[in-house]
């Protein structure tokens, strides 16, 4: 009887823990992520005439002034457009460049393919600022500095490893049996590509596109140098608000505006890409 009692108590504790743990975790996560965002939201509504300063826990007066200002008098809308355009074009270019190479590395048993798989990760480890400065001067010499072409070129360079890596993993994991079976059933090369390869690389393509898109949207060092002065993107605009002419309320508005497209991307990514896929692709690097 006593024994039974102890057991049921243990079970109860475990069940309690099972309920409490998620709630505890959830509150930590909300504080960890929610508070910074909410705080920025609060700041963005501060009325510049009544500054919010030290001992006040909350702003005295709220207004939409900064929101209006940012949309009316700054180039932010154009920068958002630039960021999306660049990310979109970069993703397509990456895919076109990566597809044949990933196929060769993933499916053909080439000598030295392990070596090439390491080489392709170089842009991820090469210091961005160093690449920006020295490649930037070369691009300047080529006359593409400050143009969309130049920025797409460098964005492609830093995003390509992600696309390559994920597609290679994808090609490697295709069962050879399936492809052989298709050949065996009389499929030609084109049919094989269309009916066998394409559907199978689709998940990899989606994950790869996601990563290149984000990498391009995020890229700062190279855009900052190669894009200057004409091509501004979300990160470079923000840098200017955080740098010399730092104005917290205005920076809050800009930060929040910049957050939105990425959060939308996250939601899309969540629905389309499995965490396991991302993890596998990242973890194997």
């Amino acid at each position: 009887m006593n024994n039974y009692h102890v057991k049921s108590q243990k079970k109860l504790t475990r069940q309690l823990l099972k309920i409490l743990l998620p709630f505890g975790l959830l509150s930590i996560i909300i504080v960890w992520i929610g508070v910074p965002i909410l705080y920025a939201l609060l700041w963005s509504f501060v009325n510049p005439e009544f500054p919010w300063s030290y001992p006040d826990p909350f702003p005295k007066n709220l207004s939409l002034f900064q929101w209006e200002y940012v949309f009316k008098y700054t180039t932010i809308v154009k920068s958002i457009g630039n960021s999306f355009l660049l990310a979109f074009v970069t993703t397509i270019v990456c895919f076109i460049l990566a597809l044949p190479t990933a196929y060769a590395l993933g499916r053909r048993k080439l000598k030295g393919s392990e070596f090439f798989k390491i080489i392709m990760l170089l842009p991820m480890v090469f210091p961005g600022m160093a690449m920006g400065l020295f490649l930037g001067r070369m691009l300047h010499g080529m006359g593409v500095s400050g143009t969309y072409l130049g920025v797409v070129m460098v964005h492609t360079l830093v995003s390509l490893p992600y696309m390559l890596r994920i597609l290679v993993v994808n090609f490697e994991s295709m069962p050879q049996d399936l492809i052989d079976a298709a050949s065996n059933l009389g499929a030609g090369n084109w049919v094989k590509f269309k009916e066998v390869y394409l559907p199978m690389i689709l998940p990899g393509l989606v994950a790869g596109a996601m990563f290149t898109f984000i990498t391009s949207m995020e890229e700062f060092n190279l855009t900052f140098i190669v894009g200057a002065p004409d091509i501004t993107t979300i990160p470079t605009v923000l840098y200017s608000y955080l740098g010399e002419n730092f104005l917290r309320t205005r920076a809050s508005v800009v930060s929040l505006i910049l957050l939105i497209p990425n959060l939308i991307l996250l939601i899309v990514a969540e629905r389309k890409i499995k965490t396991e896929y991302m993890g596998a692709a990242l973890g194997k690097m």
């Binding site: 076109i96 460049l97 990566a98 044949p100 190479t101 990933a102 060769a104 590395l105 080439l110 090439f116 080489i119 392709m120 170089l122 842009p123 492609t156 360079l157 390509l160 490893p161 390559l164």
Partner: peptide, 8 residues
């Protein structure tokens, strides 16, 4: 390999 590795 040229388009991917070559570019990089």
């Amino acid at each position: 390999l040229i388009p991917g590795i070559g570019y990089i």
